[in-house]
Design a protein around this nucleic acid. Sequence first.
DNA 1: AAAAAAATAGTACATTTGTACTAATGGTAG
DNA 2: CTACCATTAGTACAAATGTACTATTTTTTT
Lengths: 208, 208
Amino acid sequence: MVDTKEKIRKAALKLFNEQGIDAITIRHIAKELDISHGNLQYHYKNTNDIILVLFNELNEGFSRFFTHRENSGQVTLEDFRHWVEILIEHIWQYRFIFLHFVEVTRRVPEIKTLYNSWDKAREEQFLLLFNTLIREGIFRDDIPPYIWKNLITQQYIMADFALSHNEIKMQLKGKKAVQYYGQVLFNQFYPYLTAKGRQQADKHQGIN
Amino acid sequence: MVDTKEKIRKAALKLFNEQGIDAITIRHIAKELDISHGNLQYHYKNTNDIILVLFNELNEGFSRFFTHRENSGQVTLEDFRHWVEILIEHIWQYRFIFLHFVEVTRRVPEIKTLYNSWDKAREEQFLLLFNTLIREGIFRDDIPPYIWKNLITQQYIMADFALSHNEIKMQLKGKKAVQYYGQVLFNQFYPYLTAKGRQQADKHQGIN
DNA sequence: AAAAAAATAGTACATTTGTACTAATGGTAG
DNA sequence: CTACCATTAGTACAAATGTACTATTTTTTT
């Protein structure tokens, strides 16, 4: 037996990513799956329910991904770059959320709460990471704390809205977008590097 | 005689900023103004028309603002900070565009074209500004060109989506939001400063 | 096998929205 | 004054949507 609920989530994710959340109703999703909208409604009362479930999926993905790299003692810049790329890939998978973040949070207020509570953990981890990289002589040690905090906010905004920027500007598709914005996100950290850090970065420098 | 067209734009801007573009139809705007929607339709066929006009208003504002500061030969960091603040204030004025940027460009494709063509000029001016600040010993001279270009992209994303971030996170109101995100935007440049530049910056440092 | 529960299809209806259209009003140029 | 044009109000209707509900079929449980 195929799990209808899962089929619905998959189809909804696809349609949301392609056409946005306003254009899509349960009727559209039902049509995509060739089932009745009455049936779909039996599983999820409306699109907002589905959006919430998909947001939780995204969150679980992130959590798995964060705890995964916790045990590593030392961090190279290359690790960090790789980490940023995976982050963006995740975001790409659920891009409708980020492309319509304000609408999403207005339509499903719980999402705002979820996002904000989960966010705090992310901040801690960032500061830890920064400190590690400072200790290893990769990041500069002459940056005041409020600038590090600023960098985290900056990093949030950039990660959350990079794909929106892509949408209104270049319109890179799939892998290309992930690559490009991975690079942009990573390059954010360049001026924070020490000479040693820059050497490491230049070794692996991608397109510019 | 009061200009009905202008009254409509004002009311639409207010409603869009308050409730977003999906929630608002010409009927809502008409109701806000106590005129018939038939009348409103006579002036603007639909909300997309109004959105386009408002976007052009925003653009004109930006253009005025850019050309204004062109003639100044020397640039201090304080000038620059002030400039960033005015930028954000502008954006706040027309925040519905930035809060729903993807939707806006999807509903009114011309806006994407307008944004992109106007964008190029902005890029030139940034590079010029950076070079001036480097020559004056305020910005570092050991940053490769692709990182400066990256910084411009970064600056776009940050400016365009700072208010979206505010919406899903802290929800600062009016002046508070403008102040906070002005600071965030300005702090982006901190690690690009020379020792001399940092001195200048610290003199006027705001909240942290 | 019978009963109960879960899943699916389909209907019904009030509301909203986009769009087009008609009618009335008011100012103004000739 | 009157004929014309711009402006305003209001009506009409099809399509889409949210929501609730019924009927049927399928699956599971006992």
